[in-house]
């Protein structure tokens, strides 16, 4: 398999350049700087989105859109922002969350997502939607959907691998409150997940 040849990543610098520096270089029009940022944050952004929308393709599309925003409208960040966690990750995460929530609202409106009737779509063959994981995933999503948006975002960000400072920067809360809010959100999530798990197994005969 011949991959499209790309130069930039091979010649990467021994010391990681800061987001700020890359961002500045990107603003000067250096494509490689943009690519470096893309590669640096794609996975985290994808993870945030995947847990939000629960669909691989949608998550990928939204991640693409998020980076498209960075491509066309790179934010103005100060060193202060970056050192305090509200740097580029926070900015990207906010864009991603906004788009993700918008997408969910849009779907809800058109009721396109007809719950477990997804199967009825011969048009959707996403293997990650496959029956195996589908049940658990939809339960996770149901529980998340039930939570206040902020708590939900907090979990999505944390489990996408953001640091407390980055989470605080994204949600614009005090960094010192992240631990408390996180513990609370996890407890709420755990309790609700247990509840729905119980509901869904009751009333079904044992094979």
């Amino acid at each position: 398999m011949s991959l499209v040849h790309r130069q930039s990543m091979q010649g990467s610098r021994p010391v990681q350049e800061s987001d700020m520096a890359l961002l500045e270089r990107w603003k000067q029009g250096e494509q490689q700087a943009f690519e470096a940022l893309f590669t640096r944050y794609y996975e985290r952004i994808y993870r945030v989105l995947y847990n939000l929308v629960e669909q691989r393709e949608t998550a990928e599309d939204l991640a693409q859109e998020t980076f498209l925003a960075l491509y066309h409208h790179p934010p103005h960040l100060s060193w202060n922002d970056e050192t305090q966690g509200s740097g580029l990750v926070a900015w990207l995460s906010r864009v991603a969350l906004n788009r993700g929530y918008n997408e969910l609202r849009r779907e809800q409106r058109s009721q396109q997502r007809i719950g477990r009737w997804q199967w009825a779509s011969p048009v959707s063959h996403d293997p990650s939607d496959m029956a195996m994981r589908a049940e658990e995933r939809s339960q996770v999503q149901a529980v998340l959907a039930d939570m206040p948006e902020r708590q939900r975002s907090l979990l999505l960000l944390r489990y996408a691998g953001l640091s407390y400072a980055e989470i605080a920067g994204t949600l614009q809360i005090a960094p010192s409150s992240v631990g408390t809010l996180l513990a609370r959100a996890e407890r709420a999530f755990g309790t609700r997940y247990q509840e729905t798990a119980c509901q869904s197994t009751s009333g079904i005969e044992v094979v």
Binding site: Y50, R56, Q64, E186
Partner: peptide
């Protein structure tokens, strides 16, 4: 508690390779 949540939220399946994603981008 964190492990439970992590087992449910930390499994985004196979995350698309970022350089592939960049090609697509």
């Amino acid at each position: 508690q964190a492990l439970t949540v992590g087992s449910l939220l930390g499994t985004a399946g196979a995350v698309p390779d970022s350089s592939m994603a960049f090609e697509r981008f």
